[in-house]
Nucleic acid binder design. Structure first.
Length: 489
RNA sequence: CGGGGUGUAGCGCAGCCCGGUUAGCGCGCGUCGUUCGGGACGACGAGGUCGGAGGUUCGAAUCCUCUCACCCCGACCA
């Protein structure tokens, strides 16, 4: 793997953008700040969706769907929530157009909405307004619901998958009878995200808690998973919020407990988005293009016949048919690319860009020898293999690739994670990139100062790892434990 | 909203300063032939309101005025 950390950030941004386009994942739409997710990109997202959805179901959650539009008054009910999102809301003010001799079509000024509708930047408000009617008794709790949806945040600067005006995500919104149970849920879902990131995306993450300044608008505590990209910058890959009773109070969601007294419910919300696609790309890809971990690859093995003419192609089809069958029997997804409109060299390059984990080439030479050529995308190694037990060998190879990708990413993260004790050391280290473990006095003032002077933010207060107390690197005041500083996406 | 920049074929660009035949190049696209084990080559071909409006001029992609759109840097942000 090229040491991309040594590349300059602008180069990395360029590399990322080119890769997304070349791997045929997505492109900018003509619509401002919006993205078109192309079939290959969407297929990977679907794999993420189905894996996550299964994990949500396994932890007792069900799916539902709530409206795209939120009346402005709902959003305004939770003070810090509206403050947090106000600057990036798309607003619907009219419901009709009319033709105009000069401009063609104009908004009909007669058709102004009595109350503006906000295109959801997140759904807490509309969901809690709905939950009010659903929760009456402790017997109705917990309420464990997830929704797959799109949301809109009118960002100034957008980047494919990482920050777009509209994005796809899932948002879980749960209601609980007790504080402890809600916190337990918040932490459970954080664990689900961490497991998903590590086992499916092959992306190591650090679980932690956000500082007050980075906290979700309306939350009492925000948990997160943070990953390191190949340029050493941090990416927040998922969040899980303990909302306390803030939304229950704002929307008057109360239940009668076993003691027959009324209480506000306790809430959580948690989400991951198509940003995970960006995380996937920036964690594993190289100068040859995208690298998809086998568990998320829409197609794990692609077979490319080398054939001069239709007879040779037909011979190759016959030759690989039992191989394909054997692999499918092992739940390996296989594509036989017998398209004669593209040549082998073109296909090799194409599947590399697109990140297919394993490519098998079959030519006349192989058919004589009873072999195939197996190429793995992660290391770019090619190997001639006997067709005997090929499906089993490929199954193992896919497992190795998945593990190798995780290990590679972990090695990079560990290499660029270090502790510093003084602010001077910190300033040097932050220029080198990566995660920096340092003591912090817990004040917003110090955090702000570090951010202004170095552009580094506190990514999280880790839940695991070195928990020894110390002295703040900036002020020398007591620190409970080291926190992670980094420059972030 | 500040500071820069760019609009010419599907994409990327040259031409503009210094106005002058039919607006050009690369990629891509189409047809045919030779190729096909790492993005082939050749021949032929299709494709343009030069962002828009107005002006100067015998003549405007080129000069002037206005306008629109987009991009980059910053503030903001998952």
């Amino acid at each position: 793997m090229a040491d991309i950390l040594t590349k300059r950030t602008e180069d990395y941004a360029q590399w990322y953008n080119d890769l997304v386009l070349k791997a045929d994942l997505a492109e900018h739409s003509d619509v401002r700040g919006c993205m078109v997710i192309k079939p290959h990109g969407y297929a990977i997202w679907e794999k993420m969706q189905s894996a996550l959805d299964a994990m949500f179901k396994a932890t007792g959650h069900v799916n539902a769907y709530f409206p795209l539009f939120i009346p402005k008054s709902y959003l305004a009910k939770e003070a810090s929530h509206v403050e947090g999102f106000a600057k990036e809301c798309a607003v619907v003010t009219h419901y009709r157009l009319k033709s105009d001799p000069v401009h063609g079509v104009v908004v009909d000024p007669e058709a102004e909405l009595e109350e503006e509708l906000i295109v959801r930047p997140t759904s807490e408000t509309i969901i809690w307004n709905t939950y009010r009617g659903w929760v009456k008794s402790y017997r109705d709790l917990p309420l464990l619901i997830n929704q797959w949806a799109n949301v809109v945040r009118w960002e100034m600067r957008t980047r494919l998958f990482l920050r777009t005006a509209e994005f796809l995500w899932q948002e879980g919104h749960t209601a609980h009878a007790t504080r402890a149970e809600a916190i337990e849920e918040t932490e459970r879902m954080l664990d689900v995200y961490a497991t998903f990131a590590e086992e499916w995306l092959a992306m190591p993450v650090i679980k932690g808690i956000k500082t007050a300044s980075e906290r979700f608008a309306g939350a009492e505590e925000t948990y997160c998973i943070e990953a390191m990209m190949q340029d050493g910058k941090a990416l927040q890959a998922g969040t899980s919020h303990f909302l306390g009773q803030n939304f229950a109070k704002a929307f008057d969601v109360v239940f009668t407990n076993k003691e027959n007294t009324q209480e506000h419910v306790w809430a959580t919300s948690w989400g991951v988005s198509t940003r995970l696609m960006g995380a996937l790309i920036m964690t594993h890809s190289d100068d040859h293009g995208l690298v998809i971990p086998p568990k998320l690859a829409p197609v794990q093995v692609v077979i490319v016949p080398i054939a001069k003419n239709e007879e040779q192609m037909e011979a190759a089809r016959t030759y690989v048919a039992p191989i394909v069958q054997a692999m499918r029997a092992r739940d390996i997804t296989v594509k036989l690319d017998d398209d004669d409109k593209r040549k082998p060299g073109w296909k090799f390059a194409e599947y590399e860009f697109k990140g297919y984990p394993v490519r098998i080439a079959v030519g006349p030479r192989d058919m004589e020898n009873g072999t195939v050529e197996v190429a793995r995308r992660d290391t770019m190694e090619k190997q001639v293999m006997q067709v005997v037990d090929l499906a089993e060998k490929v199954e193992h190879l896919l497992g190795h690739i998945q593990d190798n990708l995780y290990q590679k990413a972990l090695t990079l993260r560990e290499r660029y994670t270090r502790s510093v004790d003084t602010y001077d050391e910190f300033k040097v280290a932050i220029e080198e990139g990566g995660f920096i473990l340092a003591h912090w006095d817990g004040t917003a003032g110090t955090e702000e100062r570090v951010k202004n002077e170095t552009k580094a933010t506190i990514r999280c207060i880790p839940l695991d790892g070195d928990a020894a107390p110390g002295k703040c690197m900036v002020t020398g005041a007591p620190s409970a434990r080291r926190v992670i500083f980094a420059r972030a996406y």
